[in-house]
Nucleic acid binder design. Sequence first.
DNA 1: CATGAATGAGAGTTCATTCAT
DNA 2: CATGAATGAACTCTCATTCAT
Lengths: 195, 195, 195, 195
Amino acid sequence: MARRAEETRERIDRTALRLFAEKGVDQATINDIATGAGIAEGTIYRHYKNKEELIWGLFSSNYVALADRLDRLQEAETGLRAKLEAMVSMFCSLYECDPAMFSFLLLVQHRQLPRVTPAMPSPVKVVREVLSQAMERGEIAPRDPEPLTAIVFGIVLQPAVFKVYGRIERPLTELSSQLAEACWMALKPTSIGTG
Amino acid sequence: MARRAEETRERIDRTALRLFAEKGVDQATINDIATGAGIAEGTIYRHYKNKEELIWGLFSSNYVALADRLDRLQEAETGLRAKLEAMVSMFCSLYECDPAMFSFLLLVQHRQLPRVTPAMPSPVKVVREVLSQAMERGEIAPRDPEPLTAIVFGIVLQPAVFKVYGRIERPLTELSSQLAEACWMALKPTSIGTG
Amino acid sequence: MARRAEETRERIDRTALRLFAEKGVDQATINDIATGAGIAEGTIYRHYKNKEELIWGLFSSNYVALADRLDRLQEAETGLRAKLEAMVSMFCSLYECDPAMFSFLLLVQHRQLPRVTPAMPSPVKVVREVLSQAMERGEIAPRDPEPLTAIVFGIVLQPAVFKVYGRIERPLTELSSQLAEACWMALKPTSIGTG
Amino acid sequence: MARRAEETRERIDRTALRLFAEKGVDQATINDIATGAGIAEGTIYRHYKNKEELIWGLFSSNYVALADRLDRLQEAETGLRAKLEAMVSMFCSLYECDPAMFSFLLLVQHRQLPRVTPAMPSPVKVVREVLSQAMERGEIAPRDPEPLTAIVFGIVLQPAVFKVYGRIERPLTELSSQLAEACWMALKPTSIGTG
DNA sequence: CATGAATGAGAGTTCATTCAT
DNA sequence: CATGAATGAACTCTCATTCAT
C-alpha cells in the first residue's frame, strides 16, 4: 500500500522534472504532469501541497544531492587541479546521464535560490570551499573567493547551456578536460610567483 | 500626434522591461505594465500585437543593440587581449548602468533564443568571430570556437548572476579586468608554443 | 467486534459535531473529521452513506432527543408559567453543558428543517402544544399559536446566539429566570381579564 | 462607460443577493451568479476581488443601511413604546418588500459578524442604545442591556425565520403590532413600581 | 470493519485579449 | 490613438467518494 504511493510519487517526480525542463515551469500544467504520469490531477495534491512545493521538492532534493556528490568527489582528491577535474567531469557526465534534471536545475534556479537556506548543502558552497582551501594551502593567490566561484561555475554551466540550445553538438563529456583546464588557468592568473 | 504615440510606446517599453526583470515575464501581467506606465490596458495592443511580441520586441532590439556595440568595440581594438578587455568592460558597465535590461536579457534568453535567426546580429556571433579571427591570426590555438565562446560568456555572465542574487557585493566594474584576465588565460591553454 | 464499531461511531459523531459547530458544516471536511477522530477517511463511509447523512443523523437524533426532554419536562409541571420555566431552564443549562451541540443545532437548522417530517417529535411542536393547551385552559387568550411559538423561541435562542458571539458574557443559566419571565410577559398581553 | 459598469455591478449585486438567499452562500457558485446576471464569470472579478468580498460587500452595505434606517426611525419617535413600534414595523415591512435581502442577512450574519468593527453602525447597537436611554429616562428598570437587546431581536427575528420556512403564512406586517407589544411587555417585568 | 491511495467533477480565480465608445 | 469594461479559456486546487487490500 505504501509501496504503491511511493511508486506514484516517483512517477510524478519523473514526469514533472521532464515536463518542467521541456516546457518551463509555468508552461507545464498540473494537468500535463498528471496525464504524463498516467494519474489523476488530484493525486498530485496527495503528494505535494501545491505546485510550488512540487517544484521546490524537485529542486531542493536534486540540488542537495548534487552538492553532496560534489563534496564527496573533491574530498577524494588531493590538490585543486585534481579536485576541479573530478567535479567538472561529474558535471559533464551528469548532463549526459540526466539532461532533464540538468536543464531543470538550470531553469528554476532563479526562482528557487531565494528559498535555499544558508544551512543547506549547495554546489556553490562546495566549490567556494574548495577554492578557499586552495588559497590557504597556497595553491592559488588569496582573493575574494566569490568571483572565482562564479568564474568556475560560468565556465562549466555556459557550455551546458550552449549544449541545451544545440550550439554545441559534441557530448559535454568530451569537453570535460578542456573545461577543467580552462578553470585551472582562469584561477591561476595573479598567483604567479605563488606556486 | 505621432509624438504622443512615441512617448506612450517608450513608457510601455521602459515599464515592461523593468517589471519583466523584477518579477519575471510570466509573473508581470499586462495590467501591471499598463498600471505602471499610467495607461490603459488596451493601449498596449495599439503598439504590440500581443504580449509575446512585446517581449520579443524588447529582447530583440536590446539584443541586437548589444551585439552592435560589442562589434564596434572589438573593431576598434587590435589583438585578442585588447578586444576581450573592451568587451568585458562594456558588459560590466552595462550591468551598472542598466541592471534591469541586463537582468531582462539574462532572464528571457531561454525563451527568445529560438526565435533569433542566423542573419541577426548577436553577441554570441560577435564573440565567436573575434575568437575565430584570433585563431586565424595565430593568437590562440585553432580549435572548435563554440566551446571557447561558451567559456567566455560563462566567465562574464555568471558573476553578473551572482551579483543579481547578492552573492557578489562589489560593483561588477571593479571586477572587469579580473574577468578579462580570466578569459584570456582560459583561452590560452593549448596554445603553448603556438604564439 | 460490534463494541469496536460502536466506539468508532461515537468518535465520529463526537468529532463531527464539534467540528461542524466550530467551523460550519461546509467548512469541516470529511478529512478534518477523520483526522480529529483518529481514523481513516474511508471508515466514516462504513457508518454513514455520505456526508449529508452524517449531518442529518447528528441533527435528527439530537433534535428529537431535545424534543423528548422538553416534553417530559413540561409534562411534569402544571400551568404555563411552570412549564415555561422548566423548558427555558433546560435550554440554558443545555447550552452550558454542551455548547457544541447547541451551536450545531442552531447552525444547521436552516438546512435540515426541510427534512423534518410532521411525524417527528420536534421542540417547536412541543412548545406550540404547550401554548395551545394553555389557551384551552384559558391561561392565555386564544390566538394563532404559531407567532407565539416563534416569540418564545426567539426570546430563548437569540440570547444564546449573543452568547456564542461573545456579546453576552455571563452564563446563560444566570439569565434563565429572566428569559422565562420575558416569555411569560410576552405571552400575556391580550390575555387581560383572563387570568 | 462608467454608467455601464455601474449597471453591471447592480446586476451582480441583485443576482448574488437573490441566489445567496435562495441556495446559501456556499451553494451559490460564481458561475450561477454570472449566468443569472447575464455576464461572464470574469466580469464579477472586475467588481469584487473575490467571492468573500462580494459577500462582505453585500452584507456590510445592507447591514449598515439597515442600522441607519433604524436609527432615523427611533430618533423620530419619543418614548420607548413608540420607538419599538417604529422599529418593529420597519423590520416587518422590510421583510415583505425585500425578503431576499432579509434572508440573506439572516443567513450570512454568522459568517460576517466577526468582520463588523465596533465603529460600524449596526442594528444591534441602535437597539441597545434605545434600551439604554429608556433606562436612563426611567422608562424601564436599569439592567444589563445586552440580554434585553437579544430578547428584542429574538422576538422580531424568530417570527421572520418561521415565515421563511412557511410555518407562518400571514404577512409579517400583520403581526407587527403584536410583536411590538410582545417586546414592550418582555422589557417591563422588573420595572414594576418604576414607571 | 478498517484502511488510505486514488479519483475527478467542479469550484474559485487569473489574465491576455477584444471592441464599442 | 486611447480607453476600460467585458470576456472566457485555462489554470490551480479542493474534497466527497470509491475500492482494492
